[in-house]
């Protein structure tokens, strides 16, 4: 006669076997199609980004020709934006390339998450500079002026980025870090 422990072992084996033999054929087709759609969507995004950059450069040149300092600001901010984006992409790529090395998966991952949390905390202070610049422009040119509107728009974008970091990215990083807590036992 089987005791409780043997019975529970049998239940465990039966459940593991169900997980091992799960049907993946249908889902493989859907995921493959999802990948194709995702690649097409990313191409569209890259195309739109290129259009956005070209428009920004043309606008910057136009403002410079008009003798407006906003043109210089645009052409200074664009390379900064490129550098930031390139840094993020390179960092993401390195993250997965590093997974081939022999460093401990979980402890290395925890350290990376702690680093990311620090970066997010720093990012929360980024809106301060454009905010100060906007207040300066408003005090000089008034609220109803092209320059003030441009700076308000710029500050809004940076502020939304910081809010996204605070309310979406930060909680997800904290949850991920909590999921990686080592077993106490």
């Amino acid at each position: 006669m089987m005791n409780d422990s043997t019975l529970d072992e049998t239940v465990l084996e039966e459940q593991l076997e169900r997980l091992r033999s799960v049907n993946v054929i249908d889902s493989a087709k859907r995921v493959e199609q999802g990948l194709v759609d995702s690649v097409a969507e990313k191409r569209r995004q890259v195309f739109l980004s290129v259009v956005g950059v070209v428009i920004s450069i043309l606008a910057g040149i136009h403002f410079i020709i008009q003798g407006d300092p906003i043109g210089y600001l645009t052409l200074i901010l664009l390379p900064l934006m490129f550098t930031f984006t390139a840094w993020r992409i390179a960092k993401q790529a390195t993250e997965y390339e590093n997974l081939t090395s022999g460093s401990s998966l979980l402890s290395g991952w925890r350290n990376e998450l702690k680093e990311k949390l620090k970066e997010v905390n720093i990012a929360l202070f980024i809106p301060i500079l454009p905010l100060l610049m906007t207040l300066f422009v408003i005090s000089k040119h008034g609220l109803i002026s092209t320059k003030a509107v441009v700076f308000i728009l710029l500050t809004t974008v940076v502020f939304l980025y910081a809010m996204y970091q605070l309310f979406v990215i930060r909680p997800a990083l904290v949850r991920e870090l909590n999921m990686l807590k080592p077993n106490d036992s």
Partner: peptide, 21 residues
Amino acid sequence: DQSIPIDLINVLNKLSLDMKA
């Protein structure tokens, strides 16, 4: 598809990630 062993998944969710992995 009722093949997913839900009891097992719930048990796995109670383990820490280093154990679950």
